[in-house]
């Protein structure tokens, strides 16, 4: 860049802010899906840059599986207090109590897939017409093909063959009643971009992203945090390890990685050198080659 300094993080940031403001301008009742993970935390910072000193034109929505890391919930509550915005919680436990979903059984039981129903019910209850999410195209091959404005039918389904062309920086958010649009402002960011941005902006994160000692067991070749939410039996041997988490999801499906990284700089060097992709630590993607595509078609984030 010649006369002013506008580097790749500035460009990604400006694009994301533009997308968030399009959401504000085009929709009646948008929401920002907040998981407590680094990507949605990044979205909150971008929303501050898009709308301050005004209020956010949307509430934060947390789809709570009830199987969270306590650190994430503490972080969420402190952050909501700091930014002074509204938080709506959609509870998977409520969906189970209401008989809308049935808890999985067996060793690999997880509430991850149950979230979809709670998400769709929450969207219907509050009549959200747009849901902003922190998904990125570098995460997974089905996501690599998804639009920034991704239209879902009234059943929440994504139809990869009927996606609207998305041209230049023009986003078509027009929908019929009952449909909604999932919006991904950081589609063009990579995992490393997110970390570099968090470092640059000095954004605070939940402590589980950094190296700590934790009781774990081995499940399908991966380290899982020992917790009452895992169906453990006598074959599972609990041991203590120095670990951290690369993504923050439900405790029953998010694997830890061995790590000594205590600072963001350590994490960035670790990721730069890493040979395992971020979603490699997610059991939910390992079911089949098209696992994510199938879940998205069913209404997943």
């Amino acid at each position: 860049m010649s006369e002013y300094n506008f580097d790749y993080l500035d460009e990604l940031e400006a694009e994301a802010i533009h997308i968030l403001r399009e959401v504000a301008g085009q929709f009646e009742k948008p929401a920002l899906l907040f998981s407590g993970g680094k990507d949605s935390i990044t979205l909150v910072r971008l929303a501050e840059k898009a709308f301050r000193p005004g209020k956010f034109p949307f509430p934060l929505v947390h789809i709570d599986t009830g199987h969270n890391f306590q650190e994430t919930i503490d972080y969420r509550d402190q952050m909501v207090e700091r930014i002074g915005e509204r938080l709506i919680v959609g509870s998977v436990q409520d969906s189970i109590n209401d008989g809308k979903v049935v808890e999985q059984t067996g060793k690999n039981a997880s509430r991850n897939s149950l979230q979809t129903i709670t998400l769709l019910d929450t969207i219907a209850k509050y009549e959200f017409d747009a849901c902003i999410g922190g998904a990125r195209r570098d995460e997974e091959k089905a996501r690599a093909k998804e639009r920034i404005f991704s239209v879902r039918d009234e059943f929440g389904q994504w139809d990869p063959k009927r996606q609207r062309p998305e041209l230049w920086n023009i986003y078509n958010g027009r929908i019929h009643k009952g449909e909604n649009v999932r919006i991904f402002p950081i589609s063009n960011w990579t995992e490393l971009d997110v970390w570099n941005y968090i470092r640059r902006e000095k954004i605070e994160l939940p402590s589980i992203y950094f190296s700590h000692k934790r009781d774990v067991i081995t499940r399908n070749g991966q380290l899982m945090a020992a917790s009452p939410f895992l169906n453990m039996d006598n074959e599972d041997i609990v041991f203590n390890k120095q670990v951290r988490f690369r993504t923050v999801g439900d405790m029953s499906c998010t694997a830890a990685v061995e790590s000594e990284a205590v600072l963001i700089d350590d994490i960035i060097s670790e990721i730069s050198a890493s040979k395992i992709s971020e979603r490699g630590a997610r059991l939910d993607d390992k079911v089949s080659e098209a696992a994510m595509e199938d879940r998205k078609k069913g209404g997943y984030f």
Partner: peptide
């Protein structure tokens, strides 16, 4: 090839975005 139909048919149907970076640039 991201989509099931693309892998089955061995063709590209939709736009796929890919990312890589070197010391000099980020590429989309």
């Amino acid at each position: 090839d991201g989509l099931r139909a693309e892998r089955e048919q061995g063709i590209t149907i939709d736009v796929a975005y890919k990312y890589f970076q070197t010391e000099k640039r980020k590429f989309i």
